[in-house]
Design a protein around this nucleic acid. Structure first.
Lengths: 217, 217, 217, 217
DNA sequence: TATGAATGAGTCTTCATTCAT
DNA sequence: AATGAATGAAGACTCATTCAT
């Protein structure tokens, strides 16, 4: 398996493929309802009804309602960091010089996360809502971020700061500004105003431009 | 009463001053619990307990649990738009030339919203969480935004675009980028990492800089 | 005061005249609501609202909700027996020979109770409904019946049986048949089908006829 | 199945036979308590306790407390009209000449309803009490009466009036007098004075006699 | 494995009643 | 006398979870 395949697999791996049909129905129903009404306001009986299974069946697969939530949300948190996890991705940037310039890197990440968000709106809604109330999720999030995202990002930033491409702000500030802008874009695009008329290509370009200019020396 | 006084009053008016003591205790307890555990996961009996009142007392003042939420959240939504509502503010910008340049305007808004956020973290958490699940809140939000914020913002943007201070992006794009960056800052500062070590002054400066550069022609 | 006056007074005495205005409002509201929704389904706060008084005011005049019910219902039970209580009534029948025949007696009672029912539909509804669930009311009812109604009635029945005007059934049977027919008429007329088109005079005549024929030897 | 069997089945069909054991316990407990204390004054927790089930179990079988009431009362209302619904009954009267005379018809109905009442005192109490406060029940009652009872009754009355057996009163008046007398008897016998010493056979005879004489030309 | 009846703790809300003003 | 805020027990109903089938 080439590194590219690993990367692709990570990105595309459908966790649900390994689930029994009933389980898939349960997870699907739970995703829909959690994202519509929130975890706390969704009852297991509603999930069972929408999934077309008996109430007891949910608890055969997931010990508690919270387990079901974690089973759904945990892999999403992992996937949020996927582009930074993939070895091939990291190597490409510095070794192969493909992403030599900052813009290319930004675009890769943004487009990639854009596509990811596009396909996973309900899941992202759930993460956004529930992370606030479940310390386990926060921990998991922080861990992934600290272990997978931060190191690479810091390397990128130092690298481009050394090259004089971006301002000499503290890493965390650069990080905050960039991530904030990216997430702000995706949240606006897919969650707050998903029904607006969007010229996605142009907006992506402008957002990249905004970040680049915003950070340039 | 001078215009400044009106402005200040708007900003500082404490809705809770008109409430009976028991009501204040209830509202206070509800704010704490809603922001900690979320509206749906907070029981009225818990609120009563923390407020030190009988459960029935809650319902004497608020017909339903949801009424209590709305009583708490609605004024916050209004206040979010306060700097744009205040007449004195708008006039100053264009008439008195005080905020002649874009930077000044941005700083006024950012500092002002920063102070507001600082004093209202739990309330903002509640708004952020609950807006997603309560259409009434969404409607109220949209209305305030469309009526109070949008028109002024559009005037600012056109004004500065004509002066060649900011890029010729569609209004909505400029709006999105600015608001996203501001909110992203405040959310990171007060909600995601409130316990980090922050050099607030520097961060505000950098954020303003980022926006200015990001949008400049 | 003549005996007739006493009779009249008994029939017309308005218990509510001695009540304070607030009390009258309370009683009036309670009568309306008890008869519409039943005692158990009517809340004191509803009564207070409809009466236009504070909730506490009810309890200043009536120690408990049940006291209010009893204050309303007790006098009605007494009044149900009024024609038999009035001395003048009893005397008239036998002394003055006015009601010499059975038909005259029946008509007097029926017309009199008809007028009483007509003016007191809500009160009668309440009695009918609540007697079943409040032993105090049952006791009060039985006492009045045994003390005031039964003796006179028995005298009437014996009297007419001796005269060969009515069948030689046991007193209780005659009583049951007569009372049942009278109450059945009034309940049908005023409670079950108050909105039907009634030729009251004719129905009264037919009902009397039915009883007379039904009992005649 | 002969017509008689169908008739018998209608009369005896026990709706509770199709219920699960828990459901039977619930219904049984509810019947007892509703008839003792009234629907509004009976709490679901009391029913659960007396039924020996968890409170939640009630709501698994009956969506609301009112549903439980309707499930109990609705079939009773239907059964009240059963003797008129049974085809065999109607046919017998006119075709087979069995009930040729009015007395026979009255006796059949009265004895039959007497036995029904005897076996269903608590249910009849509930109907009598709750019909007043639940429009659904009133509607259901009126419908059954209009569709099943009235037409047959009118035929009987016309038939006997043509034969000169009963007075030429309006149908509704005859109906009222007969029904009133029958119900009055049953209510007195089973609800008001169930503990008195009753010579049922004699009372039935006298009641029939009373009706016959009362209506005869 | 899947079911769904059963549970009883817990939910929001209402209630009759009290009491300081 | 009248008020109405406050109470906390009780009400109908829901919930996540269990378990016998």
């Amino acid at each position: 398996m080439t590194e590219y395949d690993a990367f692709k697999e990570l990105l595309e791996s459908d966790d649900q493929e390994q689930l029994t049909p009933k389980q898939q129905q349960i997870v699907q129903a739970a995703i829909e309802m959690f994202s519509e009404k929130g975890y706390a306001s969704t009852s297991t009986s509603e999930i069972a009804k929408r999934a077309g299974v008996a109430e007891g069946t949910i608890f055969r697969h997931y010990k508690t309602k919270k387990d079901l939530l974690l089973a759904i949300v945990s892999p999403v948190i992992t996937k949020l960091a996927v582009p930074f996890i993939a070895q091939s991705f990291v190597k490409q940037v510095f070794k192969e010089g493909e992403h030599e310039d900052f813009e290319e890197l930004l675009r890769t990440i943004l487009v990639n996360r854009f596509e990811f968000a596009k396909k996973n709106v309900p899941l992202l809604k759930i993460v956004l809502q529930e992370v606030a109330f479940h310390p386990e999720l926060q921990d998991r999030y922080k861990e992934v971020f600290r272990a997978e995202v931060l190191p690479h990002f810091e390397r990128f930033i130092s690298h481009y700061q050394e090259q004089g491409l971006i301002k000499d702000y503290p890493t965390e500030t650069v990080l905050r500004l960039v991530i904030t802008t990216v997430i702000g874009f995706l949240v606006t695009r897919f969650i707050i105003m998903p029904d607006g008329e969007w010229d996605d290509e142009a907006e992506i370009d402008r957002t990249i431009d905004y970040i680049l200019n915003g950070l340039q020396v």
